[in-house]
Design a protein around this nucleic acid. Structure first.
Length: 844
RNA sequence: GCCCGCGUGGUGGAAUGGUAGACACAGGAGACUUAAAAUCUCCAGGCAGAAAUGCCGUGCCGGUUCGAGUCCGGCCGCGGGUACCA
């Protein structure tokens, strides 16, 4: 008997797979292709247990598809640009490039022992000039087709560090490093015209049958289509009218003020000679830019003194306010406030003593709104008060439609479909990203680079001893010739948002070494990704941007015509979470500690840490657990088996170390069983049949389980079958077959152990290439079934009936059951419900 | 704030609207062993009971249904996203 030793088994089979190029993906027409992809990692330094979970799931699918006769593409790469590399460089004096590539090397060394069925020949990092150069080519093509444009946009500015801050770097309105009050700055930036695709991105969600409904719903809400109206409000001073956008024009009667965004032209004009307004607008500018902060902030405003006429009730004048809650980016940057039917407007009206007037009542409740706005659903009937279009008892939706018609007919406004989705600003004032291939020429303006000059490489000789973008202060890198006129010009020093890098990497994997962004034949063969797997935290941005890119790349000829969506099926795995440990630093700000540094709630020096409840593992909160310990102690198969076994893949899981031991014991047990089989004796024909029945049932369960991402339930079934096999008195040949099948069913999860058992039991070739077992349905037919019998919905007894028994016969047998008779105590049931093969319920 | 999820024993979790707690961890009892480890067998939601059994039980309140962990409405708690974290 050989002891189960993963440290011997695992490297051995990994070498065999590598020599045989088992997982090398080559185009071929004799098998259907299958492209499985896990969201590629950011090389933060260490692989963490969430990565292991993610890649193991993908690997199960990839290996299963290989076994079911597919030509599988399963690549891996690195999402390598991003802020942490610059932060590391600033903190420890290194270079982002060195830090990143060192992390990649380390993480790859952690990943390789996992035995993933990856085609490593396709590996790339997004910070490779070969990759980002092609991304620059895409930028130039997108620009040419009008998919990219420039406009002014606001950024967080740290006046002490003299640098742009990410939202994450703004804590309570202060710069995370300097502690200075963050200001806003307007910069001219590049934008993707994703809004051109709002309607298509929304409509196409319907056809994504293999995406989780929740993700489609989130995307749909994010795109946020709404039907509304632009209404013209004439100013009493005769100046240009103010156009308001509203999705609730049915509430027009209750309009009592107009609110414009602080950066609305009306406000901007007034600010010049009104210090009060200027001070207010200035205060608004200091607000946090995030949507969450804006929405949660106290709603404030200031009266501009301007008055407009109500478009219907011309005798009414409405004051025009500047409101800190109005967004210039959405609609027209101006809204009318109707306090009676909007809680925010009501709070605002009470605060500033503005009138509150109902546009409608609920039927039978003719009361004016006081402290709570009356906001019925659009489909509830309400009673309108002398509505100008002459409607009365209708739903809000009907009133909205009627109002829009009325306004359009009178020339007071026009119906407008509005999307919440904003254009995607891609400019970043940072070094460690893909340089935007634009040259600024005094004569020609912003000119795209010629493709022959790509890649525009990042210079290596930069320093991070002071904050800010080193490209800005590089002595020579910016200097270049204008691609158009040849005159001396300056490069753009902004780089691209790292979301750009991850919006097309899946297409690049189909031809990672092509001299153009994609090879159209390779893309036509391998695209779309058949199964994409990644964290739910990417439900909106990354997935939406990738969907946009697929369309933009099709339009620019980089993906074949007919490519609509990049990802046919999506599975969103839950996150691995862990408690966060925190102390307070000398400067009063929080200091986080790795779990491995915390023992029983204290640090090595005895300092007590505060424990913050579990959250997504993230480097900034230092609650990351890496898999090295488990890999070293138990091997890859145990780690893989364990991360799949204990929780449903779509659910978040709190990391605990216990349990890995049990997984390891189980694998050792299977290995022992496999060895015992060869020396087992005798056999009983009935035992053979029983074992084969159990085997075919398990094949069915495991196949369905893998197909539906029910990995944890699949593993439970495999535990069950292992127990049956261990106790079986069947013949050696039957046990041999059962054990080989068990090894196959386990092989997507525990590929090394399965290969070992396969070869031990005389399997042909590699288990990785062996055809997936097929359940023999005739073995699964049962003669009798056990049915629970309920009385008034509570289980009281059970009966054994023939599988094909008629309802009457089942009912008769249930009524004859002794326990049932005892409970009925002579009573006649009101009703007996028989669900064949399921249950009997007797209602008394 | 808004959008989207999730909530089941001591723990991770299972359960096409049909026997709640499969499978596993931790725990308990036993077998083997001089002993331990390893392995194997059994027990195990709560309360009451010697047991048979009874009652209660899937975050809380209510509803639909013969039947609800599952569907609907309203809460509470936690998590993700919220456009420059990736």
């Amino acid at each position: 008997m050989t002891i189960y030793s993963p440290s011997e088994i695992e490297p051995k089979w990994q070498a065999v797979w590598a020599d045989a190029e088992t997982f090398r993906a080559v185009r071929s027409d004799d098998k259907p292709k299958y492209y499985v992809l896990e969201m590629f990692p950011y090389p933060s330094g260490n692989l963490h247990i969430g990565h292991v979970r993610n890649y193991t799931m993908g690997d199960v699918i990839a290996r299963y598809k290989l076994a079911t006769g597919h030509n599988v593409l399963h690549p891996m790469g690195w999402d390598a640009f991003g802020m942490p590399a610059e932060n590391a460089a600033m903190a420890s004096g290194g270079h982002p490039k060195d830090w990143t590539y060192a992390n990649i090397a380390h993480m790859k060394s952690q990943m390789q022992p996992l035995g993933l069925s990856l085609d490593w020949t396709r590996e790339f990092a997004t910070c490779d000039p070969e990759y980002y150069g092609q991304q620059q080519a895409l930028f130039i093509d997108f620009l040419e087709k009008g998919l990219i444009y420039r406009k002014k946009a606001v950024v967080n500015w740290d006046p002490v560090d003299m640098t742009v801050l990410a939202n994450e770097q703004v804590i309570d309105g202060k710069g995370w490093r300097s502690g200075a009050d963050v200001e806003k700055r307007e910069l001219v930036q590049w934008f993707f015209k994703i809004s051109d695709y709002s309607e298509e991105l929304l409509a196409a969600l319907d056809a994504l049958d293999d995406w989780p409904a929740k993700v489609k719903l989130m995307q749909s809400n994010w795109i946020g289509m709404s039907r509304g109206i632009e209404i013209r409000f004439e100013r009493t001073d005769g100046d240009d009218p103010i156009i308001c956008y509203s999705t609730r024009p049915d509430t027009m009667r209750g309009a009592s003020f107009i609110a414009v965004a602080p950066d609305h032209p009306v406000a901007t004009t007034l600010v010049a000679d009104n210090p009060n307004l200027a001070a207010f607008v200035d205060e608004c500018r200091k607000m946090d830019t995030t949507e969450a902060a804006m929405e949660k902030a106290e709603k404030k405003g200031i009266d501009t003194g301007i008055r407009v006429k109500h478009p219907v009730y011309a005798e009414q004048e409405l004051p025009v306010w500047i409101g800190n809650f109005v967004l210039m980016d959405y609609g027209t940057g101006a809204v009318f406030g109707c306090p009676a039917h909007d809680q925010r407007d009501l709070d605002f009206a009470r605060k500033y003593d503005l009138p509150v007037r109902n546009a409608f009542y609920m039927p039978g409740e003719e009361v004016e709104v006081s402290t709570e706005a009356l906001v019925p659903s659009k489909t509830e009937p309400v009673v309108f008060i002398d509505h100008f279009a002459g409607i009365k008892d209708v739903t809000s939706q009907e009133a909205i439609d009627a109002t829009i018609d009325y306004f359009e007919a009178k020339g007071l406004g026009k119906g407008q479909t509005q999307f919440r989705l904003r254009d995607w600003g891609l400019s970043r004032q940072r070094y460690w990203g893909c340089p935007i291939p634009i040259v600024h020429c005094d004569d020609c303006g912003a000119v795209p680079e010629t493709k022959e000059n790509l890649p525009i490489r990042l210079p290596d000789d930069v320093s991070f001893d002071i904050p800010g973008n080193p490209l800005d202060r590089h002595p020579t890198w910016r200097d270049c010739a204008c691609p158009k006129c040849g005159k001396a010009a300056k490069r753009e020093t902004d780089t691209m948002d790292t979301f750009v890098d991850s919006s097309w990497y899946f297409a690049r994997f189909t031809a990672p070494h092509a001299a153009t962004p994609t090879d159209i034949e390779d893309a036509a063969y391998w695209m779309n990704v058949d199964q994409y797997i990644g964290g739910i935290e990417h439900a909106i941005l990354h997935l939406l941007y990738s969907r946009f890119f697929a369309r933009a790349m099709r339009m620019t000829g980089h993906l074949p015509q007919g490519t609509e969506e990049p990802f046919n099926a999506l599975f969103t795995q839950g996150m691995v979470t862990h408690e966060i440990y925190k102390t307070t630093g000398d400067d009063g700000r929080p200091v986080y500690h790795f779990p491995s540094d915390v023992i029983n709630g204290t640090l090595a020096d005895g300092t007590k840490v505060d424990i913050i409840p579990s959250a997504k593992m993230s480097k900034s909160k230092k609650n990351v657990v890496d898999p090295d310990d488990i890999l070293e102690k138990y091997g890859a198969d145990t780690a893989r088996w364990f991360v799949l076994s204990d929780s449903p893949p779509e659910r978040d899981v709190e990391w605990t170390a216990s349990g890995a031991e049990a997984a390891h014991k189980h694998l050792a047990r299977v290995y022992r069983i496999a060895q015992d089989v060869m020396s087992s004796e005798g056999g009983d024909p009935i035992e053979d049949v029983n074992l084969m029945r159990a085997m075919h049932k398990t094949i069915l369960d495991a196949t369905n389980g893998v197909e539906s991402f029910g990995f944890n339930a699949t593993i439970a079934k495999l535990y069950g079958f292992t127990a049956v096999l261990a106790k079986s008195k069947a013949s050696r040949s039957a046990k041999q077959e059962a054990t080989r099948t068990l090894a196959q069913l386990m092989s997507p999860m525990t590929p090394h152990l399965s290969e070992e058992i396969w070869s031990l039991l005389g399997g042909e070739g590699l288990i990785a290439n062996a055809p997936w077992p097929v359940a023999d349905e005739t073995m699964l037919v049962e003669d009798t079934v056990t049915l629970p019998v309920q009385i008034n919905g509570k289980r009281k007894s059970e009966i054994e009936v023939p599988a094909d028994a008629a309802k009457d016969a089942v009912e008769a047998q249930a009524m004859a059951d002794e326990t049932v008779r005892k409970h009925l105590d002579g009573a006649t049931p009101k009703k007996v419900i028989v669900v064949p093969g399921r249950i009997v319920n007797i209602v008394i």
